[in-house]
Design a protein around this nucleic acid. Structure first.
Length: 857
RNA sequence: GGAUGUUUAGCUCAGCUGGGAGAGCAUCGCCUUUACACGGCGGGGGUCGGGAGUUCAAACCUCUCAACAUCCACCA
């Protein structure tokens, strides 16, 4: 017996362990079933649960729950990501907080601390999955640093290397001086900031004249190797062949000409510092310039800076400038808005920095991915264009990181010869030492779909579950992750990693701003779930998850979801009270037109729900379900059924109870992927239920014949009810105002008249007979006319004129279409006939209304 | 600079293959009808951003203008 009010505390979180222990979450390997597989985007072991996780996880959970009931053997691989930089920073902070001297810590000691951090957070994440009711296949749990996955990473590295796709090189990379590691350009956040533009004097060697160079980073001047001007710039051509003196270190540098320089920007002349700027580096390569580096890895100035050595880059900048001002070498200092890169992780200003790193060559991999673009479907389709655009422009990926936490690069150097050997297994440390760097976190994530399925050692798992059926993700990691999985998988398995990519938006706050830490506008899902319940949150998420569109948090919508669940709860409670004795397997042989029509509507809705779910239009399926329950199930049918149950016809009563229970069970199965806890709680109250709703399936229970005749009559009944209700409301009558009613059609079923009577509060219903008195109002629909009689002075004529106007408008519209020769000639016959039939019907109704109106003349 | 979107009721947003403009909230009116007041019934409210085109037919396809948003690449 269910309590009167839905309360999420009654349902939330009650079944997870039970379901899990019963093995419902694990794949069955049942060859009679079609496999269906996906991987959870592995959360970082740094992390706190946020609404984005709730969304992403819920979408996947709804899909897998749906697919299981639809008869698939489902594998949903859970996992966690070591999240190199992020975790290392947090573990270091923790050690620091514990009073340890970070500068003295050894790699081994650090890794020990990091692994115990991982153990703690792994448990935390598992709790979060339970909290979100994520029906993951726990037996497949993986961690990106597992030794099996490390083997895969080493193998992949070696194969790439041997194919010439991984190479080592001195390049300008994005250097994070706080974390002392290279990062990829995607991990650089660009922001416009206030900066200063310093105009410095570079004198000719003979000090007869000077040119002015503007720079935002004067501290890099210690590494200047040339000045550059545009080859057609008349201002500077006269200095061709001359040398200039670097004001910061008095070194003599040449002037060169290259059309890279924009004469209209700044002073039209720039300094070339190849080790500290990408474009300068390009020039350095082109003109074979030296590439001195004036900065240490922690962002302090090195020996090239002479007296500034050891100072932080920003302090050195200030001191240098004040010294140069004292020497009259600064023309002016200008305030400008400048676009600067910051590290996504540490927030430090990124230093473009010449450094030896490992790179993955993107061109061939990208082209391969572009070639196979038809093998996977993006939902929504626009992301395919975005993906292709990125692939077309992808630059080589810097994959090495100067960190400890991650997959150490499987490259060994000979201690004497420095010969480079790539090896999947460690080499004898007597002769070799391993590259100390680790790989970018995303390098191992890129292999996730096939590495977690046992590639290359468990071909049976791969054969059955790979490629995955779907990958669900927010759009913000398309380039970090989705793209990289695609090209990695195509290279190593010759297949796309997944057939479908479902891209959803990100969460915004109620006023549309992105949620982030510094704004403090984040919303804690734990609070939301404790307030409204997980199932209300899920229903809100799933009915709003329009592919690719951002979410706006809304308390109103959560309340709405909660109200819906209360509604459904009460529908269920009412039906369960009535139907404890019903045996669903005893199917009635015939049905009243109301039951018949309702069953048809139910089946139409079910088809629509499946069709949209199969296309991953989950929000449409959810919305259809909500409106079916509100409008058709509870508002119409449930109310009609009350009349049927009052009938003295026992068969009709029994049949109606059967339909009520059948409908409840059908809807429970459909709502289950959306709100599993509520569904299970109600399900186990159903007579003849199985152990769990998870043992149910979407196999059709009965074969229904669609009867358009029943549906028409049902709609006719509905039409009159709402016409009469509307008449009362607009005539300022209370809804329960009672009238005598005349119905012109004598062949209507008794239940038609009973329902009509109850819902219009008619005192009595008279069939056909002449009634001398003038009706208050008459309604016409198809063959049937209904008139109300009683006291009062209501504007029948006005009511009829209103109907007349509507009919005339409809007829005008129909005639307009049908008098159009082009429409008749070119529109499909089906559409033309439809319009013809409607026109005839409206014309008949018009005649009737006109006849009634004649009585007033 | 390159790319991709968005613009529909007061607000937040649906709208599938081109075939009579929808929901929730808000608003107004009525109703304690025994599943539910976290409820029921009824109403008002829209030039589908502007313009042009294709089509028998356009919120939907094409072009164009405008505003807004996101991503990528960015000048010393």
């Amino acid at each position: 017996m269910l309590p009167k009010r839905y309360d999420h505390l009654l349902t939330g979180g009650k079944y997870y362990q039970k379901w899990r222990e019963a093995g419902f979450f694990e794949p069955t390997f049942d060859v009679k079933k079609k496999p269906y597989s996906l991987v959870l985007p592995p959360p970082n072991i740094t992390g706190k649960l946020h609404l984005g996780h709730a969304l992403d996880t819920t979408v996947q959970d709804a899909i897998v729950r749906y697919k299981r009931l639809a008869g698939y053997d489902v594998l949903w691989v859970p996992g966690m990501d070591h999240a190199g930089i992020a975790t290392q920073a947090k573990v270091m902070q923790k050690l620091k907080d514990e009073g340890q001297d970070i500068s003295k810590i050894t790699r081994e000691a650090f890794l020990k601390a990091a692994w115990s951090w991982k153990d703690v957070y792994a448990e935390e994440i598992k709790k979060q999955w339970e909290f979100l009711n994520a029906s993951l296949s726990h037996r497949f749990l993986r961690f990106t640093l597992d030794s099996e996955l490390n083997q895969v990473v080493n193998q992949v590295f070696k194969e790439y290397y041997e194919a010439g796709l991984i190479y080592q090189g001195e390049r300008i990379i994005n250097w994070d001086p706080a974390l002392k590691t290279a990062i990829s350009n995607m991990e650089v956040i660009r922001k416009d900031v206030e900066a200063k533009f310093y105009y410095l004097k570079y004198y000719l060697e003979d000090r007869s004249a000077f040119v002015v160079i503007a720079t935002t980073r004067p501290e890099t001047c210690f590494a200047d190797v040339a000045l550059v001007a545009h080859p057609k710039d008349q201002r500077y051509l006269k200095y061709q062949g001359k040398n200039f003196v670097n004001p910061t270190n008095q070194e003599v540098i040449p002037l060169i000409f290259d059309d890279y320089v924009d004469p209209s920007f700044g002073t039209g002349m720039m300094k070339c510092t190849p080790a500290h700027d990408q474009n300068d580096y390009n020039l350095g390569i082109k003109y074979h310039l030296a590439m001195p580096n004036c900065m240490n890895k922690d962002g302090t100035i090195n020996a090239l800076g002479h007296k500034y050595q050891g100072l932080d880059r920003f302090i050195a900048r200030e001191q240098l400038i004040s010294d140069l001002i004292a020497l009259d070498l600064v023309v002016k200092v200008e305030n400008i808005k400048h676009n600067l890169g910051f590290s996504e992780r540490s927030g430090a200003v990124i230093e473009p920095y010449l450094s030896k790193q490992w790179f993955l060559k993107m061109r061939p991999l990208a082209e391969n991915a572009i070639k196979h673009r038809r093998d996977l479907k993006w939902i929504p389709a626009k992301y395919e264009k975005i993906f292709l655009n990125w692939m077309n422009n992808a630059e080589d990926w810097c994959i090495s990181r100067q960190l400890w936490w991650g997959h150490q690069i499987p490259v060994y150097y000979h201690r004497e010869t420095e010969a480079v050997v790539v090896s999947e297994t460690p080499l004898d440390p007597k002769f070799y030492y391993q590259d100390p760097d680790v790989l970018d976190t995303w390098f191992s994530s890129a292999l996730w779909p096939f590495s977690t399925l046992g590639w290359p050692k468990i071909p049976s798992h791969l054969a059955r579950y790979f490629p995955l059926d779907i990958q669900v993700s927010a759009y913000d990691i398309i380039f970090f992750w989705i793209s990289r999985m695609i090209f990695s998988s195509l290279y190593f398995t010759k297949e796309v990693p997944f057939r479908n990519v479902f891209i959803h938006g990100i969460f915004r706050d109620a006023s549309g701003r992105k949620m982030n830490k510094s704004l403090g506008n984040g919303i804690d899902p734990v609070v939301v779930i404790n307030t409204y319940g997980l199932d209300a949150l899920r229903l809100f998420l799933l009915s709003s998850v329009s592919p690719g569109i951002d979410f706006r948090y809304s308390d109103d919508k959560l309340k709405e979801a909660n109200n819906f669940l209360n509604k459904f709860w009460n529908v269920a409670r009412y039906i369960l009270d009535l139907t404890s004795a019903v045996n669903l397997s005893l199917i009635p042989t015939t049905f009243s037109f109301i039951n018949q029509a309702f069953l048809s509507k139910l089946s139409d809705f079910e088809k629509k729900y499946f069709k949209n779910f199969d296309k991953y239009q989950i929000h449409l399926s959810s919305k259809y379900l909500i409106s079916f329950v509100y409008e058709v199930f509870s508002s119409e049918y449930l109310e009609f059924s009350k009349v049927l149950l009052l009938s003295k016809d026992e068969k009709l009563g029994a049949e109606t109870k059967w339909v009520l229970l059948y409908a409840l069970k059908t809807i429970l199965r459909l709502i289950y992927p959306l709100t599993p806890d509520v569904a299970e709680t109600i399900y186990v109250e159903i007579p003849g239920h199985l152990n769990s709703i998870m043992e149910e399936s979407y196999q059709p229970f009965i074969a229904l014949k669609r009867t358009s005749k029943s549906i028409k009559k049902y709609e006719l009944l509905n039409h009159f009810i709402s016409e009469i209700r509307s008449f009362k409301a607009t005539s300022n009558l209370p809804p329960n105002a009672a009238f005598k009613m005349r119905v012109s059609e004598t062949k209507l079923e008794p239940e038609f008249l009973e329902v009509l009577k109850r819902f219009t509060f008619a005192k009595e219903v008279i069939l056909e007979e002449d009634i001398k008195e003038q009706p208050l109002v008459t309604f016409v629909k198809g063959e049937v006319e209904i008139s109300l009689f009683g006291d009062g002075n209501f504007a029948l004529k006005a009511e009829l004129l209103k109907q007349l106007t509507i009919l005339e408008q409809e007829i005008k519209r129909g005639e307009g279409m049908l008098n159009n020769a082009n429409f008749l000639a070119k529109a499909p016959l089906e559409k033309v006939n439809l319009e013809k039939n409607k026109l005839i019907k409206y014309q008949e109704e018009l005649t009737k209304v006109r006849n009634i109106l004649k009585q007033f003349d």
